[in-house]
């Protein structure tokens, strides 16, 4: 009877004004059988980490198109460390310049998805990050 479902927080930190991409991902993850906590636009790093803590999120997905990903992610990573939450996988979607990628990985961002990434790729990454898809699932 036990049923664990991955709880994925999808957040849109920063000031850029639309969240179409984040919503598309949120919906695709729901359709893959996950429980997606969607927090909406203009989240501060503090709000993202507080929500992840309260919701006991298994992974955090950030969508950042503003170009401000470096300071935002750095702050989120710091706050996760301050809350002993470094074990929560962090993934990032947006337009990320190549030179930033090694730094982000160094900070612990395990998945980085550019505009060309397929949804299947993102879903497979998350199942892997949270310990595997349920048996019989074709996601």
């Amino acid at each position: 009877m036990d049923q664990a479902k991955p709880r994925i927080l999808i957040a849109k930190p920063g000031l850029d004004g639309h969240d179409r991409g984040a919503k598309v991902v949120a919906r695709a993850l729901r359709d893959a059988g996950m429980e997606v906590i969607y927090t909406g636009l203009r989240q501060t790093p503090e709000m993202v980490v507080e929500a992840a803590l309260q919701e006991d999120a298994d992974a955090i997905g950030l969508s950042i198109l503003s170009g401000a990903h470096m300071p935002l992610v750095q702050r989120i990573v710091d706050l996760l460390a301050a809350n002993q939450m470094t074990d929560v996988p962090l993934f990032l979607g947006g337009i990320i310049p190549n030179e930033d990628v090694p730094v982000l990985k160094e900070w612990g961002v395990t998945g980085i998805f550019g505009p060309g990434a397929s949804m299947d790729e993102i879903i497979a990454f998350i199942w892997d990050a949270v310990g595997g898809a349920p048996a019989g699932d074709v996601a």
């Binding site: 729901r30 429980e35 997606v36 909406g40 507080e50």
Partner: peptide, 18 residues
């Protein structure tokens, strides 16, 4: 159909964060 869920109520409760 999928067993998944999109939990979106927090979007309207942002004043309570912090």
């Amino acid at each position: 159909f999928t067993g998944g869920a999109l939990l979106g109520d927090r979007v309207r409760m942002r004043d309570l964060s912090g």
